[in-house]
Design a protein around this nucleic acid. Structure first.
Length: 755
DNA sequence: GCGTATTCCATTTTT
DNA sequence: TGGAATACGC
């Protein structure tokens, strides 16, 4: 057995990898080799004789799953493909596909994306005659989603005094009613939303038809969960059902970092980590605290910031990467200036440190901030790529074609049906459609069934409309017959042509119109590669069949960000959330302002303490993305929603001890030592000596002794007060002039010249 | 029934 | 600011 992979591990990592039996909790600080531990652990399981298909590894993102599989492949070879590794959603969708009929869903169930969900809820609100102003669709969706994620059924909801009161205060007392109707409507439509992939999975295991739970308990002998801090109660519940039962070996390993929990807003709770210790008494805990990513100033800043959060598991990350460069804080007068300064700093760093575009990331709190950076980067001719925003699959023409495919596979899919029934326009207007929707609602049957016999449900339908509906039904039924013989690609090609989508798009001769045709073509190409190479985007899938149904199930859970296009040597722009799990040589965290980071939403939420703590963890995540260079920027004024807004600098800036930072404004630099960082807009500018690095002739370490006068490349002249530490890792306390004061400096990294 | 003009509206993060 | 719902004219 080749166990070379064990050699490069530090002692804690080694234990976390090799203690394979029983429950294990790994607390993994940022950059501590978490993925390494996880993948080596899986490789180690396989090498220890565990069959790969007995291993279930759950992640949050497709990207993480992909990376994990690739890295396992490198250590464990082909067997990696047989491991059940994927996102919670994808894995459970796969299981549900096999078991759905046991809980009253078709195995070809549709997966509703958030926009489907919203339109579905909107229809219910309308049908019930609730005031759409009071009943904001997104708000209702959020409440329903939270309920599901807390394992609250519609019946529980109706009996939950706290929820009812909260709904009442939000001026929407009938959310519980909408929830109930929504669930029923989904069931009628043979559809599940994202939350249902968890909720129904839990239901399946809990209600346990045909003792299905035993099947999966037997199958999955070893369970691993990544990003455990981001799991919600529902996910925890599923895990419990799979692992905690009489006689269970409880071979579960969860890996997470409470300090990086940034998804509480959608139900994640670090309570799961705390509960885990209670629920598994013989738990083994390993803490990975050594950071292999960042230099010391960055690590220290991260520790400083997170120490302001009360509720956390005790740990402190450290690094041996050396002191590194100080963190730069930059104030700009406007968002535009902020963008210009960031772009020119990138240009400068590229020159000075021979860095490439791909070494840089610009991070922001909200995607809307990306725009100004686009312009400034263009101005400097710096290649960039924006992550997030409107995804490929959210484009209208793509959704339209996928709408056809969904209806063909599952005609009960009402959201898809409504989208395409009159696109391209074929004379089935709103009037007819709302009559028929009503009939479907009243009779509690799928809209499709009503369409098939439209006139018998409502004889006020015009003959013209009735004829069009008839033709539409026949079109879909023709497609459905082909389903028996054709693969996904053939089906999609036929659908694009015969539906009239391609002809309709061809009418538009503008460049945008051409682009839409190209997009459809791209989708078709994607389906082709699914059929021929088992891929979805860039993701390798282990699909069972090449049917359209199988394709749709896979595609629903893949987003744009999963296919890494030609991001060769481009500066990456993304939200802090999107940056989680990534690392860059240089990171710019922008918009460090009150009301933006922390966000206004957090500040005015009803538990603002908890919300700000989450923002702080988000900031912690952002800081710890940086390997060598970290720049924090803020703007005194910025455009938001078409209006000029004036904000103070973020409270988070003040939480970083000032000796980690260097403060800059409009190219004039100022040192701040010991005093609080000015948070007002009118920040007093401390203009002192020039900050160009001083040319140093580095003196050997043994010459640096107490009393010596030394010159530091950035702090200037100072006097050595004290030297301590091991001979190969001496730390000197040096007193510098000006307002720098005394600093502790690791001699093996500092550039000092004895005078 | 259809396409365009206008007004309005809400603005976070994502599987 | 810009996307989406509504109003209006054909």
């Amino acid at each position: 057995m080749n166990e070379d992979y064990l050699k490069g591990l530090n002692p804690v990592q080694y234990n976390a990898v090799t203690k394979i039996d029983g429950p294990v909790l790994v607390i993994a600080g940022p950059g501590s080799g978490k993925t390494r531990v996880l993948t080596y652990r899986i490789a180690h399981l396989v090498n220890s004789g565990v069959a790969p298909w007995e291993i279930l590894a759950l992640t949050f993102t497709n990207k993480a799953a992909k990376e994990m599989k690739e890295r396992i492949g490198k250590v464990a070879g082909d067997k990696a493909n047989q491991i059940w590794a994927g996102t919670f959603h994808a894995i459970f969708a796969r299981i549900l596909r096999a078991e759905a009929t046991k809980i009253g869903f078709p195995s070809d169930f549709s997966i509703y994306d958030p926009s489907d969900v919203k339109s579905c809820i909107a229809e219910i609100v309308k049908g019930q005659g609730f005031d759409p102003k009071a009943y904001g669709v997104s708000d209702i969706y959020h409440r329903i989603s939270m309920a599901k994620n807390c394992l609250i059924s519609p019946r529980d909801y109706a009996a939950d005094a706290e929820r009812l009161l909260d709904d009442k205060q939000a001026n929407m007392p009938y959310v519980y009613k909408i929830y109930d109707l929504y669930i029923k409507k989904l069931q009628r439509s043979g559809a599940m939303d994202f939350d249902d992939l968890l909720f129904q999975m839990h239901r399946l295991l809990k209600e346990n038809p045909d003792n299905v739970v035993e099947k999966y308990r037997k199958k999955f002998k070893y369970l691993l969960v990544d990003e455990f801090q981001d799991t919600n109660s529902l996910q925890y519940g599923i895990i419990q059902l799979l692992v905690k039962y009489p006689g269970s070996p409880q071979n579960i390993c969860v890996v997470g970092d409470d300090a990086q929990s940034i998804y509480a807003f959608r139900g994640a709770t670090i309570q799961n980590i705390l509960d885990f210790e209670k629920d598994y008494p013989n738990l083994q805990v390993f803490k990975l605290e050594q950071n292999y990513r960042s230099t010391n100033y960055i690590v220290q800043a991260a520790n400083d910031v997170i120490s302001h959060n009360k509720k956390q598991i005790r740990k402190k990350i450290y690094t041996e990467k050396g002191e590194g460069e100080q963190i730069k804080v930059i104030r700009a007068v406007s968002d535009n200036e902020e963008a210009r300064m960031v772009a020119s700093m990138i240009a400068e760093l590229k020159l000075r440190h021979r860095m490439k575009n791909e070494d840089f990331a610009i991070l922001y709190r909200v995607n809307a901030q990306s725009r100004v950076f686009e312009e400034s980067l263009k101005g400097h001719r710096i290649a960039y790529r924006i992550y997030g925003g409107l995804s490929f699959y959210e484009r209208k023409e793509i959704k339209d074609l996928i709408g056809y495919l969904r209806v063909i596979v599952n005609p009960k899919d009402e959201e898809a049906l409504k989208r395409i029934v009159n696109y391209p326009t074929r004379g089935i207007g709103d009037a007819s459609l709302s009559k028929l929707s009503l009939a479907a609602e009243v009779n509690a049957i799928p809209l499709w069934e009503v369409l098939k016999k439209a006139v018998s449900f409502d004889n006020s339908i015009s003959t013209r409309a009735a004829k069009s509906i008839q033709e539409f039904v026949m079109l879909i039924e023709t497609f459905q017959r082909w389903l028996q013989t054709e693969d996904a690609y053939e089906m999609a090609k036929k659908a694009a042509k015969l539906s009239g989508i391609l002809d309709d798009l061809a009418k538009d001769k503008t460049p945008e119109g051409q682009g839409r045709i190209e997009n459809v073509q791209e989708l078709l190409d994607g389906i082709k590669s699914f059929v021929e190479e088992d891929t979805i985007g860039e993701l390798q899938t282990e699909v069972q069949d090449k049917t359209l149904s199988s394709y749709l199930q896979n595609i629903a859970l893949v987003t744009d960000s999963d296919k890494d296009e030609d991001d060769n040597d481009r500066v990456k722009l993304m939200s802090v959330h999107a940056a989680k799990g990534l690392e860059f040589k240089a990171v710019f965290i922008t918009g460090m302002e009150e009301n933006l980071f922390p966000s206004l939403m957090a500040l005015k939420s009803k538990d603002s303490r908890a919300a700000i703590d989450e923002e702080r963890r988000l900031f912690y995540v952002a800081i710890t993305r940086a390997e060598q260079h970290l720049v924090l920027t803020y703007a005194s004024s910025r455009y938001r929603f078409g209006k000029m807004q004036y904000n103070n600098s973020s409270r988070f800036l003040e939480e970083i001890s000032s000796d980690c930072m260097e403060i800059k404004s409009n190219n004039e630099t100022a040192k701040v030592g010991g005093m609080k960082l000015p948070s007002q807009i009118k920040m007093p500018l401390k203009t002192t000596s020039s900050q160009a690095p001083i040319q140093i002739k580095v003196s050997p370490v043994h010459l640096i002794i107490p009393g010596a006068k030394v010159l530091h490349e950035r702090f200037g002249e100072g006097k050595v007060m004290n030297v301590e530490g091991a001979p190969d890792n001496k730390i000197a306390s040096i007193f510098f002039g000006g307002d720098i004061g005394e600093k502790r400096i690791m001699l093996k990294f500092a550039k000092l010249q004895v005078l």
